[in-house]
Design a protein around this nucleic acid. Structure first.
Lengths: 207, 207
DNA sequence: ACAGGACTTGGTCACTTGACCAAGTCCTGT
DNA sequence: ACAGGACTTGGTCAAGTGACCAAGTCCTGT
């Protein structure tokens, strides 16, 4: 109303790249809230506040969107939630607090985890998307390796196995516990499994 | 041709229950081969060699079929593939051979595992199906507990933790390793994780 | 200023999918 | 034998869905 140009209002053009980002974000929101099946091109555009026609201007095909989402869907990140590690505490205790920090993030957003599995199954079935889970998995292992190595530094300990091997197993177990938890939804039970595993991992550590 | 009644051929009526079984089996075949998204009512009927109309005579709704498939989709079974356990071998070695026997079954039919995750995600999103993963999970834990306890008996060892707790963690890790393997498809790497885990489990055992 | 490309929008299309139904055919109990 | 219910079949329907397009509007380089 304050604008003297009147009704025409603001139709500012946005770069296609920016729109792509918005669509990916909107798609992720819809998927988390209503599941991947509900994430139709129309629902995504509506969530992003765009007309439906915008979709195929930004993405040639819906598969392209999936690819973009998969590439953007970085999973849980501890960089901003790194717990306090005490060199004087037992290794088991330190491992436990680290896993607990990770788990808090999982518990905070179950939908995000579920979307990860939904996207994974879709990608694993589609020949055109099959490499993406592999890439994502490699990046996860690298990130986990980084955390493991940081833990060693801060807690002042050494591993009896190669860090990559530990990261592999750790990642698998975390994924498995998450999957189980999505099924039974028993927080205590999931944390119990995690604590058990922390105890086992501490076996492979020398202070 | 040998039938004197001629062209009319065999139109034998089958009980609805039997048809339901056939449809569930056909659905599982289609899902394993082409993914859950390809398992349309038509595709399933075609796979089962039935006309499309038969579907909604046997199942009121497609969700009912999902429920039936989920209920029937018993996962990996070691009863017919139980390995030889030697009381004179080390606990770690025995755990390892048990996990290896399990893993051979996973490797033999990757599609079956993927379908499990696909069905899981679908069920977890649908309020009407949400209890099914929970039930399935409980049954899995019970079965795993049975195997763990059988291992103890045959190998002559005792656990330092409650068997249910071990089963919970074991199940999670197996699931996680499977998921990772579906992504990277590196057989050796999956088995390496499993061997590591066997070593850790052996920590919780007393001969 | 203005040409030309980047962006925007609503509408349309071919196709699939789950659901349903009416008109049959078979089969069992009496 | 035969009534009545269980089973069978092909066809149809409404509701989406991804894809595409033509006619615009905006904006930047020259």
């Amino acid at each position: 109303m304050g604008d003297s140009t009147g009704v025409k209002a603001a139709r500012r053009n946005i770069s296609a790249d920016e729109r792509r980002r918005q669509l990916v974000a909107a798609a992720l929101r819809v998927m988390k809230r209503d599941g991947i099946a509900a994430a139709t091109t129309r629902a995504i555009c509506a969530e992003a506040g765009m007309p439906h026609g915008a979709f195929h201007y930004c993405f040639h095909t819906k598969k392209d969107l999936y690819a973009a989402v998969l590439a953007s869907d970085r999973e849980i990140d501890l960089d901003d939630a790194w717990p306090e590690i005490r060199p004087d505490a037992s290794p088991e205790e330190n491992v436990r607090t680290l896993l607990s920090a990770y788990w808090s993030q999982v518990e905070a957003d179950p939908g995000a985890q579920l979307v990860l599995y939904e996207l994974g199954t879709v990608a694993l079935r589609d020949p055109e998307l099959q490499d993406l889970p592999q890439i994502e998995h490699r990046e996860s292992v690298e990130k986990a390796t980084g955390y493991i190595s940081r833990l060693a530094k801060e807690a002042g300990l050494t591993y009896l196995r190669e860090e990559g091997v530990l990261a592999d197993l750790l990642l698998a177990t975390l994924n498995g516990v998450t999957w189980s938890w999505l099924s039974h939804r028993d927080d205590a039970r999931a944390r119990a499994s995690l604590d058990q595993f922390a105890g086992l991992l501490a076996t492979l550590v020398r202070a």
